[in-house]
């Protein structure tokens, strides 16, 4: 192998090198989550805004944008998992004989369950993709946006707004979502503060601020993501026709109240 390749391989095998991979992929994943929650919150703007956003994601860069993002995320997630799992294996091997009376002085609970919160989030992400992207549930697979079809004859698009609301009306789905997002919040409360240390940017002066930033982002994401199932479960968010949907007069929802104007 050439010297450059050897040096890169050696760096990636070192504990510090793998931690750096975790930190850098973590930054990408946090940025994705911030974008994702901002997009999701469009559901409160109504059917048209949500579905326009979903259509934009699928059509940007001639439909290639979404695939570039998916492949990028897949690589980031793959590297994040590989590096953390291999580090956890090494860390466990580093103490073969455990203390008879173990004690913790200051490590946070979140920092001690990182691998379990991470693996639960992974299981949730697999479910979430099957649920809302692959749409294995037939009830969510065939939901045409009637308002859009009426306004654009000959065209059709998936009604993401209706899919989200129908999806979260299932209490088990919402429960899994709430548990996973809460664990994500726990994971990020330690992960975001940690990445500053791994990147070498933490000092006694900045440590408190970095910890607060981690918590602030984690809590903001928790509120943002969970506001949607909360709104659906409390009935604040219903699958009612939008203003433009009024013209389409969706027959499947005759009990829906009259749409608000404006």
């Amino acid at each position: 192998m050439n010297p450059l390749g050897k040096a890169i391989l050696q760096f990636c095998r070192s504990t510090i090198g793998r931690k750096l991979i975790v930190a850098l992929t973590g930054v990408l994943l946090v940025l994705f989550l911030l974008g994702h929650v901002a997009g999701n919150l469009l559901v409160f703007q109504g059917r048209e805004a949500m579905n326009d956003y979903a259509q934009f994601l699928h059509t940007m860069l001639h439909g290639q944008g979404v695939w570039i993002a998916r492949i990028g995320l897949l690589i980031a997630v793959g590297l994040h998992i590989w590096a953390t799992v291999s580090l956890v294996k090494d860390n466990r091997a580093a103490r073969t004989e455990r203390y008879a009376l173990p004690a913790t002085v200051q490590a946070s609970k979140s920092s001690r369950i990182m691998i379990w919160s991470g693996l639960t989030i992974l299981a949730f992400v697999v479910f979430h993709i099957l649920h809302f992207t692959v749409r294995i549930d037939p009830a969510l697979a065939n939901l045409p946006d009637a308002a859009y079809a009426a306004a654009h004859p000959g065209e059709s698009r998936h009604d993401v707004y209706a899919m989200v609301i129908k999806g979260f009306q299932n209490p088990l789905v919402s429960l899994f979502y709430i548990v996973a997002i809460t664990l994500l919040c726990s994971h990020l409360s330690h992960g975001i503060a940690s990445l500053f240390q791994t990147l070498g940017w933490r000092s006694r002066k900045s440590a408190a601020l970095e910890k607060q930033l981690g918590w602030a982002i984690a809590i903001a994401l928790w509120i943002g993501f969970l506001s949607i199932p909360a709104a659906v479960l409390t009935g604040a968010l219903k699958d009612k026709p939008s203003v433009s949907g009024q013209k389409a007069a969706i027959p499947s929802d005759p009990a829906a109240p009259a749409p608000r104007q404006g």
Binding site: K19, L87, A93, A107, H190, S194, Q197
Partner: peptide, 11 residues
């Protein structure tokens, strides 16, 4: 030497 990696718990 077989030491583990740091997980920033500051114990």
């Amino acid at each position: 030497e077989g030491f583990g990696g740091c997980t920033n718990q500051y114990e």
